[in-house]
Design a protein around this nucleic acid. Structure first.
Lengths: 252, 252
DNA sequence: TCGAATTTGTGCGTATGTATC
DNA sequence: GGATACATACGCACAAATTCG
């Protein structure tokens, strides 16, 4: 079984070729694996492996019970996480780009802080937080997931306790905190590559295991106190993440 | 075959438990698949699948022909890509953290620009560039790969044509460019999740397909001209990437 | 030095689960 | 609810790498 004659790779290459030739157009469904298996005179599972390669490449898309489709190339959008002179905000995550974005959210105003969140906020695990779940939509399709936590102690009793209700709804952490006298001075974003969980994939309309970037962001006030932390799930297929950084006079 | 009774998951969980209990220590080799298969009374391939799960988790490591080992947990190091008041530099990639880092490099002073590099540098594809390949080492082990390109036209005839030779060797792009009157004002970093290629995995001592972050960085001068662009391969298992961002008075 | 035994890694066929139409 | 299609678990055979006599 030398590498040169691996059936599933040979078939994958041939399928790629036929798609390139236009035998199946964008959005078309391929013949079923059973039929293609007969055509290539191999077991259907070999076709599964071949198509899996093209699915990983992003060329095909399998829909259980329906068929295997030629994927419509979705444009990747730019997400500029920091622009010199225009600091990052939740709004910048999406809405600032053009007018087509929107988001849905739901807030729990008394949610116990999970371990990792408590550590980032500098509170005890289980301490009460305001927890908001976001789904950012483009054309009614979720393209970005986010979870945000704020210590309840910080905003309790104030009009800005809910990020998405009240006078400053949807205005972002920085402005809301300013309203109660908290000056947000800096944010730290930790990025790491990951694979979409089944739940995330389902929400985002991608395949489980697809590449995503997890962004873990924490906002700090002038005293170095964490006032908010968030976790973003950014599918690589839809977003192009970049940071613009100023360069000082010289490096140390 | 309901989810509750999937053999390979049950066995993976049990192996995880036994490792947690210390039955096999860090660096130890597990009994062979054949033996474990007999012990669990399943086909050896089921054990292969179970161990594959733990390998993906980073708990085990398979060595062809030798055995399956309990992986030594390598500490993840912090890589702060931008710190307020201390701009990013190649040195900051590694050396600024502590004294243990070093790097090796090789430079080609007349390398035709590949398509994507040319686009980023704003030159014609195939235009001559100074191309430098870096391997960053900790304890003599490569932990970070980088490729850097500069337009040859920029530095030709100057003493700073080679990043890693001459009077300012290893001093970073910003200072070198300052030497020839080019003021680097800003950098843009594009990050995206990816999987390690076989070549990269081999160099980095990780497994092919392991998660990595690709960072594509471009330096611009005061006229908005690209003066250098680089591509970094950062294995997730070893690095924790973060950006520290200033927050302005209020958001737009 | 070399080759046989051992061990991990991979391809592929069969059987079955599960979603869709 | 039945037929169809994709998804996955598992068993077998074999390849590749290592180990050891």
């Amino acid at each position: 079984m030398s590498p040169a004659e691996r059936q599933y790779q040979r078939i994958a290459a041939d399928l790629r070729r036929r798609i390139g030739l236009g035998e199946w157009q964008t959005g078309d469904v391929l013949p079923s694996r059973a039929k293609l298996a007969i055509e290539y005179a191999v077991d259907a599972n070999v076709l599964q492996r071949a198509q899996q390669l093209l699915i990983t490449e992003g060329l095909l898309e399998g829909r259980t019970g329906s068929g295997t489709y030629v994927r419509r190339p979705v444009p990747r959008r730019a997400m500029v996480r920091s622009r010199i002179g225009a600091p990052v905000s939740f709004r910048a995550d999406l809405g600032a780009i053009d007018g087509t974005g929107s988001w849905e959210s739901s807030t729990d105003t008394n949610s116990p802080a999970p371990q990792r969140v408590a550590a980032r906020l500098g509170v005890e695990p289980g301490a009460p937080t305001v927890h908001t779940v976001y789904e950012f939509l483009i054309d009614s399709q979720p393209v970005l997931l986010a979870n945000s936590w704020e210590p309840l102690a910080l905003t309790q009793g104030s009009p800005v306790i809910c990020p998405e209700y009240g006078p400053l709804a949807g205005q972002g952490v920085v402005r809301r905190m300013a309203e109660i006298g908290v000056r947000v001075e800096r944010a730290v974003e930790r990025t790491r590559p990951s694979r979409a969980t089944a739940t995330q994939a389902n929400l985002l309309g991608v395949s489980a295991g697809d590449l995503v970037t997890l962004i873990e962001r924490t906002h700090y006030d002038q005293d170095g106190r964490a006032v908010e932390t968030a976790e973003l799930v950014v599918p690589d297929s839809r977003w192009d993440i970049s940071y613009e950084l100023p360069i000082g006079r010289q490096e140390s």
